[in-house]
C-alpha cells in the first residue's frame, strides 16, 4: 500500500497500473507518478512545463 507523498492518504492503486503511469490522489488531487509496481511506489509527478503538449 502506497501513501500519497503530498497528503499522506493511503492510495488505492489498481492491479493494472503501469510503471510511469500518472495517477491522481483521490484526497488531494495531486498528480503522482507510479515509479514502481509490485509493490506500487509513487512520487510527485513532474510539474507541467512550457513545452508540454501534443
Amino acid at each position: 500500500m502506497a501513501n500519497c507523498p503530498e497528503c499522506g492518504t493511503a492510495l488505492e492503486i489498481g492491479d493494472d497500473v503501469m510503471a510511469h503511469e500518472i495517477i491522481e490522489c483521490n484526497a488531494c488531487s495531486v498528480e503522482l507518478e507510479v515509479v514502481a509496481t509490485n509493490p506500487a511506489q509513487v512520487e510527485l509527478a513532474p510539474e507541467e512545463e512550457e513545452d508540454w503538449g501534443e
Partner: peptide, 13 residues
C-alpha cells in the same frame, strides 16, 4: 519514446 504514461500511452501499450 515517453516521459510520462498518460491514458493515451497506456491504451497504446
Amino acid at each position: 519514446l515517453f516521459s510520462r504514461i498518460r491514458m493515451e500511452e497506456k491504451l497504446l501499450i
